[in-house]
Design a protein around this nucleic acid. Structure first.
Lengths: 337, 337
DNA sequence: CTGAAAGCGCTTACAG
DNA sequence: CTGAAAGCGCTTACAG
């Protein structure tokens, strides 16, 4: 039914190897020849057979993307990464095979050893992640978006969460704030061993100490009551807190702003607020928030790049940290006496 | 490097065709033979090469899943469908190739005509959806989850949203409620041409008229202010509304409950509330809500089933509507005089 | 600049 | 119940 390379060769009056080389560009083709091949391809609507190409070329042009999507996972952010990975892959003419939960390791094993995929992108990496182990032992082209506890032999890419935390602290300290708070993820997220919330929190505490700030930590549940409670606690009985950093889901951030507003606290006049390592758009919040963005496209396209580099050559194991940037939207101000 | 079927055959002392048949089960194998083959496979850690299998067997065991993930799309719900499709596919030993936005039609064309995939699952179908056209003209095994305006020649599966709307209306009407409201999606969702919100709303209005109810419609924005405004409007100046159906995102539903609570209205004593066609868990809401669930696993596994049936045989074009069910959690009560 | 041919690793009639 | 062999549709040395 579908046209094959033989059909194209016949119609163009050349050999199939010439057609193949014309397609891959791996050797020079005469001008008239290339024209004849091109029109034959158009005429026949030829599309190379993926299976044959994979078998002969030892390359499927498919990348596995594993994203466990665990319960309690914050879907929009994780999906943003899946999407970014897919988009980045397409930019290199790769397709993406989606591997989810139950398949975390079994599926990875299956698709790599059957050569269904040329490489692997690992998303939502835990500090202790069996997928990291597997990738290491499988010795397959791969990149992790996130940093496991043991990075030995692995290629990892991530936002520099420690630097992001320091950036937020410095912004507040430089503004003269003395008492600052961190509103983090729900407790279960820290318990699960997701590594970046911990990395952020530790760096936050450490650097705040270095800058001589008093630090208060909150880990609110998603409910309105949970947020209200955490905010009240972090503000303190005297409401002496004047700097607030939020490293959590958009729902919690929006609710926090609701709560501050209801409490009669103005941003930034009474409290300076920074949204840290956020994947969502804080410019539509009321008020718009200063943000240190976490850009999925950035880490994912680098991860794809490094994976493909491994497919076509060699890449030294490494941990690449992406430097954070600060976007000012007027939600911070110097502390008022 | 990796073991091939030839290695297995050699180690087991049989021909490669016997190994192949042992693997596929397409012809009976002697007991001792099967044992020898099995242990050879284990010993060599043999995994059939996907490319070779695709080429010779004309089957890749991959399904394309297209989910545009448009801006303004409600990610968690859509992801739930992608996940459900992936899970359902794996149950049939199929993998899933993820096709996103820009690739809506171009990608579909590419992966089907290169025989990269055996079939297609189309998610988040619009009333006018170019993917529906494409699937029709490509004549590839496919199923849509959702109902386009023109279903001619297509296989479609979806929750029966009309029946769901009637179910909700009947519940309220039977409880003696006379003034009922529908809190729907943000206006942009209706504008976009997503078909199920419209199907639900129309059936709601029609059936409420049949049951002699006064109907009020709201389409709030996601913000707290937007919800507050819509709820106030729907309650009416006299607050004579006693039945409320919500067909919208969880954020809006949670905020609506906040607003009702703040207004001093109790559920179900003052207002009976039903969550309709919801993919999320309403049992953790305060209060837990009666729900007519929309279960992604249901429609997706049926869609996968019908697609695979097309791959292996013939399936008549059809529109399959899944009957809704009602889960009582005590958020509705008879109207008090 | 181009072609003839081997080979990638399977599946499946065909034969016994 | 099992084997020998053709063939799936490409890529890529090898040769000219």
């Amino acid at each position: 039914m579908a046209a094959t390379i033989n059909d194209v060769a016949r119609v163009a009056g050349v050999s199939i190897s010439t057609v193949s080389y014309a397609l891959s560009g791996k050797r020079p083709i005469g001008e008239k020849t290339r024209q004849r091949i091109e029109s034959a391809i158009l005429e026949l609507q030829y599309q190379p057979n993926a299976g044959a190409r994979a078998l002969a070329g030892r390359r499927t042009y498919i990348l596995a993307v594993t994203e466990p999507l665990r319960p309690d996972t914050y879907t929009p952010a994780h999906m943003a990464f899946v999407l970014a990975a897919a988009t980045a892959a397409r930019a290199y003419d790769y397709d993406v095979l989606l591997l989810t939960q139950d398949e975390a390791t079994g599926g990875l094993h299956r698709v790599t050893s059957s050569r269904l995929v040329d490489g692997v992108i690992v998303l939502d990496v835990l500090a202790e992640d069996e997928r990291a182990e597997l990738v290491r032992s499988l010795d397959v082209p791969a990149a992790l978006v996130g940093i496991p506890a043991d990075t030995d032999g692995l290629v990892c890419v991530d936002l520099d969460f420690e630097a992001a935390a320091r950036l937020a602290v410095d912004r507040l300290a430089d503004g003269g704030h003395r008492v600052v708070g961190l509103l983090g993820h729900p407790p279960s997220v820290y318990a699960r061993g997701s590594n970046f919330p911990l990395r952020f929190r530790e760096a936050f505490v450490t650097h705040a100490a270095e800058r001589d700030l008093e630090v208060r930590l909150g880990a609110p549940e998603r409910t309105i009551a949970g947020v209200r409670e955490a905010v009240a606690e972090i503000l303190g009985p005297d409401r002496d807190l004047t700097g607030l950093v939020m490293h959590c889901e958009d729902t919690i951030q929006m609710r926090t702003l609701d709560v501050l507003c209801a409490a009669g606290l103005r941003v930034p006049q009474d409290v300076s607020v920074i949204s840290a390592a956020s994947t969502f758009d804080t410019s539509t919040f009321a008020p718009p928030l200063d943000v240190i963005p976490l850009i999925p496209a950035e880490s994912c396209s680098r991860a794809v790049e490094l994976t493909i580099a491994q497919i076509t050559g060699t890449v030294e194991p490494r941990v690449e940290l992406i430097p954070p940037t600060y976007v000012d939207r007027g939600s911070t101000a110097p502390r008022r006496p």
